[in-house]
Design a binder for these strands. Structure first.
Lengths: 359, 359
DNA sequence: TCGGCGTTCTGGATCGATCTAGTAAAGACT
DNA sequence: AGTCTTTACTAGATCGATCCAGAACGCCGA
């Protein structure tokens, strides 16, 4: 059995120094073309595939990969179109520096934090995790750059996110303007405990997913500013951000005594669930029920009817995060960027309530 | 500015040896609980987040991550439901050993191969790449375990795949039995060059995506066995495996003089495109056109009409690959496993051709 | 002939940990 | 008391590369 071939093996074999062999791979200008060719040729013969990345990364202090910490399992992440777009933007940006993505998911177990601590990466990107996730603490404890996408919003950690307050206001404002006076909110999880159903104020206040806390506060604020009572909005939390729970949540909203005339879904996935539930119940959208989504995911424009939704610059978000990572790795001080802007895209899923006065 | 804290810093500070500090993290049974507590407490004070993974991975020879080489950009990979399911199965399996996934995509550039060579991983999983992809060569040149999912089929490299020949035969057999005598095939790419349109025999023979070559050969074989002429099947290649190109390809098939009565799509994504194209052309499925898919992706059962398709055990595939990786890393000899079985799921997108004799 | 200069190559220090073999002290057994 | 075990810890070698300061060499101009 052949010994493991290293730079030293090769150097001895050829009668040159390790440094020269190393240079053949990393600094072609530091040696003559002839020696370089000789080295590479012999390397090929001996089955040497280039310097071992482990040694190199120890010496250099760089590994060439960026850790990405995602919520839940990876399958969930892949099934969420917004996550996919974030990852894609991130990957394209990082590819410019030849950086790969090391995917890990935070699953609230202790052992997991140890795995995170043992991951050799140059920087971390954390996406859409709750505040109290131990893996996030593990990531921040390492002395590497950390960029957060969406949440958790942690002081001192650069955040790439959108203006959620504004987004929620736009959506509510649109519905109020249409004349809706009773609004059902379909929330993505407030805490990662799989709860599905009505949300009370206590749960709302102690939500560990910051984004939902912020958005719900904005919704309540807008409703109060319009002079409506607090119970003009009722919130149903969906266990996970997917179409099925969205449909289920919609049933739960429409079973209420004082039935809402509009549903504000905190993601397009949930909104698609709302559309499906409405269709199954024989309620027409937007005639019997208005539906507003959030994200402007690709599916929003092709649904029936096409969704009115709050558009986030999705690919952009990942790219900005990637740019921050690159800057941080280049030694620049990264300061927290502005929140990205959102806008309301009005399509065909919203209309005035059937019985409403035309305002 | 604080110095970088290492095991040595901590050891000196506490008056113990490096080894003891290391053991505090990796082998709690090798020292007294008291010393361990003292070490961990002081580590916390000094902001030491545990042994640096780079040093550890050099010494141990393990990095705790598995490289995954995907076709095209990552966004494509994420948009393909079968890829997502593979990744998910892989991730769940590897998570048991605390292994993370390092994603890279092969993009046929030279520099890219260098990036691959510089990635510190314990093993590679290659999924659905063409034979001649340079990144695959780079991966195999390293002396680490390599597992291939689907393709390229390389002698000596363990492959996890399905019985494509059987799958193609099942699909064609089903259509022939229904009485179809003219079958259009919608192929996923044969080469990664973005070509969309009719495929001639030369292109078919020199396909660099092995799976398509195998399936097309099986289709032709089955048709010949049924005593039909070779031109009973015509093949249109779609530029990428997605719904839109599938619809486009269907238009191209139905424009032919001798219009096929059935479409055999080599993926469910393409089949969904065929359904859409048929709907847009006002052709009813399965009345005017039968459509068979391949994969049994989640969307196959919820489409209109639900797709008849060749079912692959998708999550299973990733899991098996993950299990092979684990076995290989555990030092076991991994031998190539059997191809996973496929089966035909008959739903509502196939029927006898309108004008056909009932056989 | 000699100093100065650029090119090409080398030796040794270094990155930060883990492993192996082994020591010192305390307790157990005869 | 003497020997054997067990526990708690340590010293030094080692993993495989990269970086840095400088050596050897040939070449040029004065």
């Amino acid at each position: 059995m052949a010994e493991r071939v290293t730079l030293l093996t090769l150097a001895k074999d050829l009668g040159v120094s390790r440094a020269t062999v190393s240079n053949a791979y990393n600094r072609p200008d530091q040696l003559s073309a002839a020696t370089r060719a000789r080295i590479l040729a012999r390397a090929e013969e001996l089955g040497f595939a280039g310097p071992d990345p482990r040694g190199a990364s120890l010496r250099r202090g760089r590994t060439g990969s960026v850790g990405v910490l995602l919520d839940q399992g990876l399958s969930y992440a892949f099934s969420d179109p917004t996550a996919v777009l974030d990852l894609d933007g991130l990957a394209t940006e990082l590819q410019q520096d030849g950086l790969g993505l090391l995917l890990h998911s935070g699953t609230r177990s202790r052992t997991d934090a140890a795995v995170i601590a043992a991951a050799a990466v140059d920087a971390w990107v954390v996406r859409a995790l709750p505040q109290d996730e131990p893996a996030v603490a593990a990531v921040c404890a390492q002395n590497r750059p950390v960029i957060v996408i969406d949440q958790p919003r942690t002081p001192g950690v650069p955040l790439v996110g959108v203006d959620d307050t504004c987004g929620a206001q736009l959506a509510v404002g649109h519905l109020l303007e249409l004349g809706h006076r009773r609004i059902g909110v379909l929330a993505v999880p407030l805490r990662p405990d799989g709860y599905q159903g009505m949300v009370d104020t206590k749960r709302e206040q102690f939500a560990t997913y910051d984004v939902m806390r912020i958005r719900l506060a904005a919704v309540r604020g807008a409703v109060a500013d319009a002079g409506l009572p607090a119970d003009a909005v009722c919130v149903v939390e969906c266990a996970i951000n997917d179409v099925d729970p969205g449909a289920l949540g919609t049933y739960q909203l429409l079973e209420l005594d004082d039935r809402p005339t509009a549903v504000l879904a905190m993601s397009d996935q949930l909104a698609l669930g709302a559309l499906r539930a409405a269709a199954e119940m024989g309620a027409s959208v937007p005639g019997d029920l208005s539906v507003v989504g959030f994200d402007d995911a690709p599916a929003a424009s092709t649904s029936h009817p096409p969704l009115t939704t709050v558009a986030q610059p999705l690919g952009e978000r990942g790219r900005v995060a990637g740019a921050l990572v690159r800057a941080a790795l280049a030694g620049e001080d990264v300061t927290e960027p502005e929140l990205l802007p959102v806008s309301l895209v009005v399509r065909e899923s919203t209309a005035p309530p059937r019985s409403a006065p035309s305002r």
